[in-house]
């Protein structure tokens, strides 16, 4: 169950990181930096959820 703490990572990215990412430049991948950062947050969320899903013993039950 300890693996579930990994979900704190995307939350910190979104709620704390935003304070440091609130810039229009540099433009990354054709996006203003703030929007690029949001994309990064989403990808981090997805990756963390995939890792949690994989290692959470709850998802092994009754397969």
């Amino acid at each position: 169950m300890a693996i579930r703490w990994l979900t704190l990572v995307p939350l910190l990215f979104i709620f704390v990181g935003v304070a440091f990412a609130n810039h229009a430049t540099p433009i990354v991948l054709g996006m203003p930096f703030l929007f690029f950062y949001m994309v990064l947050c989403i990808v981090v969320t997805s990756v963390c959820m995939a890792i949690v899903y994989k290692f959470d013993p709850t998802n092994k039950e009754g397969k």
């Binding site: 609130n22 703030l34 929007f35 969320t45």
Partner: peptide
């Protein structure tokens, strides 16, 4: 700029949905 919140809240909602 504030439009960016629309990208973020979904991620929070789905993360929460796991639990």
């Amino acid at each position: 700029g504030p439009t960016a919140y629309i990208l973020a809240y979904g991620a929070v909602a789905y993360l929460l949905s796991y639990f």
